[in-house]
Design a protein around this nucleic acid. Sequence first.
DNA 1: ACCTGAACACCGTTCAAGT
DNA 2: ACCTGAACACCGTTCAAGT
Lengths: 192, 192
Amino acid sequence: MVMHKKRKNGAGAVSRNADDWQEAALDAFAYGGLRAASIPSIARTLGVTKGSFYWHFGSLDDLIAGALAKWEKDDRETLETLEQLPDPHERLREIFSQSMELRRPQALFVALSGSGVTVVEKALARMSENRLRVLNKAYRDLGFDAPSARERALLVYSAYVGALYLRTQSAVLDSKGKTDSYVRHAIATLIP
Amino acid sequence: MVMHKKRKNGAGAVSRNADDWQEAALDAFAYGGLRAASIPSIARTLGVTKGSFYWHFGSLDDLIAGALAKWEKDDRETLETLEQLPDPHERLREIFSQSMELRRPQALFVALSGSGVTVVEKALARMSENRLRVLNKAYRDLGFDAPSARERALLVYSAYVGALYLRTQSAVLDSKGKTDSYVRHAIATLIP
DNA sequence: ACCTGAACACCGTTCAAGT
DNA sequence: ACCTGAACACCGTTCAAGT
């Protein structure tokens, strides 16, 4: 849970902006999935009434789209940093292992998959395609030809996504030790 | 979409049982996620009013739990069949590639992950643990020691789950050709 | 500029009454 | 044995009125 600063307006009442709503929505999504983000419950978290929501957003879908755009921007920036690592081995290892820590971004990815909401699915697809592009580039830098690089990128990304789900869902990867051991084995097998 | 038989009762009205509701719910989940299964919408599909729902089930959660139990039973039976393949190589390949066809069970797995609903998450965890157990056994049969077999089972299962998500979510694995090529490469890399 | 509070349609749930 | 239809609480949405 992220803490939200409260600002006071002239009359002493609490005042919120769109960003506050989006951050609270991302917290709610990560914790309990798409259904967890009801307008009344987020309004309670923020200390306002649900009616005020519609000053900031046109609809619940609007909030969802805006929150996802924020998350996607963060994700893009994280990836851009990793992309600049000069050594392709290190780049591959870092993308795989760093993303393995289960923080809000990873929880969001799992919670929002298969939501059946088009705008959500499209955002997830863009994030996957970005990661695949960077992984693919790293394998190319290692000297693989185009088809091999694509195949390997896809396999390592699948192994990463699958492990994320296992982490949230089952007891199989529920400790740091188990996860570290998985990461070591996956890297040894998939990254030359 | 599965077609539902309609039976007539004495007065000529349509009559439904718990199984009809559960099948319709699974169709709805697979198509649009957990939110898609509203009682009124399923009732319309079945040609009855929403009030009749509560003759069969105590609550919406009840329907969800029952539908998941059915699905889990089917899944267990599928796995038991695969488990009986004598050749461990073939067992591994079949579990990986056969599950790769995107039918209702796979769509359900993706759609219901990260739902935030405890009973749902637990069912998914049991299914994952069952598949891991069978994969683990197959690697043992191939002569791997216990830690290696566990590591390999985990990696191949992650690669499978990750690919399922990519299939539903992005354009990366959106054709049979691409998926077949992925499966071939994954098997070559992960299954000795 | 941002919020409240009342209003309305819709979904989950209950239940008395129907066949 | 199974269904209807009315009722109620709750959430999404609108909007006039408040500061």
